[in-house]
């Protein structure tokens, strides 16, 4: 194991190069092990070939360190690298000032249903949806759910409703990358996509004993 505490992006890129070299003899064209040059080329294409539209400004093409690490490793960072970025993401989580995590599960259900927000067609200033059912099974009554994320049915029933679990659920929705560096799930709180109140409502949907999720 590496002894250094703060592997940098250049380490991630070096890993990318090594993997790319190893994959050089593979004939499978579906394998994707990007070299730094390939990433640079693609990023240049993004900046050259995209135009700002509506709420979607060109600033969205400016990747942050976490995205750089995931892009350099095809979302498979080494355990060391993952641990470093996970700690950084965790450190940036803002927990509710009042120390309360549970909101209104009914508002949470509505939020979980809504997939709107943040595209160039969406009007700015209207609250974003949680997009939850796009990827997760949640309440048993909703049969139209996606499978990109794990099922959350009986989330609280199987885990209880302790303060620790509440904090975990809040933190996970706020920034999933604090737990899994290159998770497919957006960092809803970190990115400013959902407000503190909205995240509390989603936590209630998952953990409130009266929520249909736990019936």
């Amino acid at each position: 194991m590496k002894t250094e505490k703060q592997p940098t992006l250049s380490v991630a890129l070096a890993i990318g190069v090594a993997t790319a070299l190893m994959a050089g003899c593979a004939t499978d064209r579906s394998a994707y092990n990007p070299s730094p040059e390939v990433i640079k080329h693609a990023m240049a294409a993004f900046k050259r070939d995209f135009d700002a539209k509506g709420a979607a400004g060109l600033d969205r093409l400016n990747t942050d360190k976490l995205q750089d690490v995931c892009n350099a490793t095809n979302s498979k960072p080494s355990p060391d690298m993952a641990a470093v970025v996970e700690r950084e993401q965790e450190a940036a989580i803002k927990l509710p000032a009042d120390g309360k995590f549970l909101g209104d599960w009914k508002a949470g259900e509505k939020l979980a249903q809504s997939g709107r927000g943040m595209t160039w067609k969406d009007k700015a200033g209207i609250p974003n949806g949680g997009n939850c059912y796009n990827c997760h099974q949640i309440s048993p009554a909703e049969l139209s759910y996606g499978t990109i994320g794990p099922s959350l049915l009986h989330f609280g029933k199987t885990r209880g409703n302790s303060p620790e679990i509440q904090k975990y659920a809040y933190s996970k929705i706020y920034n999933s990358k604090a737990f899994s560096a290159c998770s497919a799930m957006p960092r809803f709180g970190h990115a400013g996509a959902l407000t503190e109140t909205q995240i509390k409502d989603l936590v209630a949907l998952l953990l409130d004993p009266t929520s249909p999720v736990n019936k």
Partner: peptide
Amino acid sequence: FQLGQAVFHMRAGPYDF
């Protein structure tokens, strides 16, 4: 092909997609 593959895998934006 190579550029397309890289653009296809490039994560960016508020949702990291």
